[in-house]
Design a protein around this nucleic acid. Structure first.
Lengths: 337, 337
DNA sequence: TTGTAAGCGTTATCAC
DNA sequence: GTGATAACGCTTACAA
């Protein structure tokens, strides 16, 4: 029992496939009566158009957008994926996703698969160490490519990133404003990661702006929650420990929160980059520099759509603002000396 | 500048397209020398096979799996998506996702789009109120369809769900074991949702097993975090309030944690269904009945693959076990009377 | 208002 | 070992 095709519908009605096509696509003139008979046959046969065939017309592209993110379980990237899908669906586009696990090779192979499918556009969150030189030909050929959260490497293309440096500066300045003169930095790894570097710069900017010295001993890192917790403990165990901490991403924040909570240290101020679901319920509630994943996704998707609509202007970098959310942990005052 | 096709490669080498196809698919006999010349031409022209065309052969299906989840930003479903992708990628399948926002109509339209693309299989987390009768024909035609987290409605098909009832019973029994005789239930909405109903049954099972009376006044609900927080406060404001709470999903847990933390109520025991990222860092750390989203995703994906491999046995229901994680909030003892 | 012919890029079938 | 031809289901261009 073959699935009915357009030709089957046409035969049923006694017209030709093209007429059925016209009815289904609301295109060109079709007699009212013909239209009705076609629709009836469509229902009777349970006909469903085959998108694969439709997408395969002369040089046409698949009505889908390929999205590569590091990890789907991470709410930040999950929200990004949802945001992209919400925007493109209005245009009848479908979302194809793959997760790279922060692995440049996997990222590359996902991109290759998406290109082989002839997706209409590509949105990529680059992994550390990936290189996008190979995408040059695609870009030249007019394929819209937008890099999200982290900029492209070796390729001039559209980028949508958070205002990492400014946001981090705001967060650290907030701590300094509460009297802290020794502010620790807990970052993620690898330290070469774009977001990590930018936020670290913001941290240094804030110190410089306040006339505070930079002390390399106050900088530590961990590549996951537990490692960040250990980094936090190392900082607190210094001879001249920090009285406040700035955590440069959500895993670092979670690690620091955990470490402080276990150690019963409520005297250490903490501002985290990127918001957490339960931030408000922590004790003290966590002050954060919140990113806007949905906003970033929307910006990237809109950019992609405008490129698909023929916008050939030169590559843009869109900086999505962050927002300081004051909740308590960042307002713990510095101890008197 | 057209993108090179198989025919272009063939012309370059002086063979026919079929030979190129044979080389690329390691199929049939090809002379070593021919193979090498083909590969050289592929590299020279930068040829990339067109998956759209490949997938469109006689009655063939798209090498992709359609996944419908309620919301991508929710780590539970994000993890599910990641888990599915990880398993199917090994088989060269691609993931196509859509989020239904718990809306039956949107769910239906996503499914229709996926069917139109002729996906190789469908994995669906049903929304409340959706009906899957229309998928009967697809199932009969042999399309693998697996329902995840919540069972199908109006259609006998494969299901993968958490051991909701047993898990909830375990959680509530745990509270009772710590001396609580009035245990409140904070659920999500709508109350007709499968998971909510099952967990509620588990709650009642635990009460019955312990010989405790069921008190409808101890049951409240909210459809999001804030509503759950308000529900929590309503329960605590009762004349004869609960001394322990069981929250039936992660939003309810977050709401309850928030409400208790704001009210400074550390004397109320709490066990939540579904784990939270920061559960350990809460004060007290949150005891939960953890689900296994990655395990569920893997089970669903494996089931789909086995169906694709021709397994025609009758529809299965797979119950994925939950796990009680003791952290502190569930062990707050009941006050003496 | 409708039909005809051709083609998208690949693979199946069968012949050489 | 390799080629010729047809086919997948649809749309475009042109003709009637």
């Amino acid at each position: 029992m073959r699935r009915p095709t357009m030709t089957d519908v046409a035969r049923e009605v006694g017209v030709t496939a093209k007429t059925v096509s016209r009815v289904l696509n609301d295109e060109g003139p079709v007699a009212v009566e013909t239209r009705e008979r076609v629709m009836a046959a469509v229902r009777k046969l349970g006909y469903q158009p085959n998108l694969m065939a439709r997408n395969m017309r002369v040089g046409a592209r698949d009505a889908a957008i390929g999205l590569v993110i590091p990890e789907m379980g991470n709410p930040f990237f999950g929200t990004v994926a949802g945001g992209v899908e919400g925007v493109i669906r209005e245009r009848g586009l479908t979302l194809i996703v793959g997760s790279s696990s922060e692995n440049a090779e996997l990222e590359h192979s996902l991109i290759a698969t998406f290109l082989a499918r002839r997706v209409s556009a590509l949105i990529v969150v680059p992994s550390a160490g990936s290189d996008h030189r190979r995408l040059r030909a695609e870009r030249v050929a007019g394929l819209p490519i937008v890099f999200l959260d982290r900029p492209s490497v070796g390729l001039t293309a559209d980028n949508v990133v958070s205002a990492n440096r400014q946001g981090a500066q705001t967060g650290v300045t907030h701590l300094i404003a509460h009297g802290h003169r020794r502010v620790g930095f807990v970052g993620d790894l690898p330290a070469a990661l774009y977001t990590r570097r930018e936020r670290f710069q913001g941290y240094r900017d804030a110190l410089a702006l306040a006339g505070l010295p930079f002390d390399r001993a106050l900088v530590d890192s961990g590549h996951d929650q537990d490692a960040a917790a250990r980094a936090t403990l190392r900082l607190l165990a210094l001879d001249d420990p920090p009285t406040a901490l700035f955590t440069a991403n959500n895993l670092a924040s979670m690690g620091a929160v955990l470490a402080l909570s276990r150690a019963g240290r409520r005297d250490v101020a903490l501002v985290g980059f990127d918001d957490l679901p339960l931030a408000e319920a922590l004790d003290p509630p966590l002050t954060v520099v919140a990113q806007d994943p949905a906003g970033m996704a929307a910006a990237a998707a809109e950019l992609v759509l405008s490129r698909m609509d023929g916008d050939r202007s030169k590559a843009r970098r869109s900086l999505v603002p962050t927002r300081l959310i004051v909740r308590g942990s960042g307002e713990v005052p510095a101890p008197r000396t």
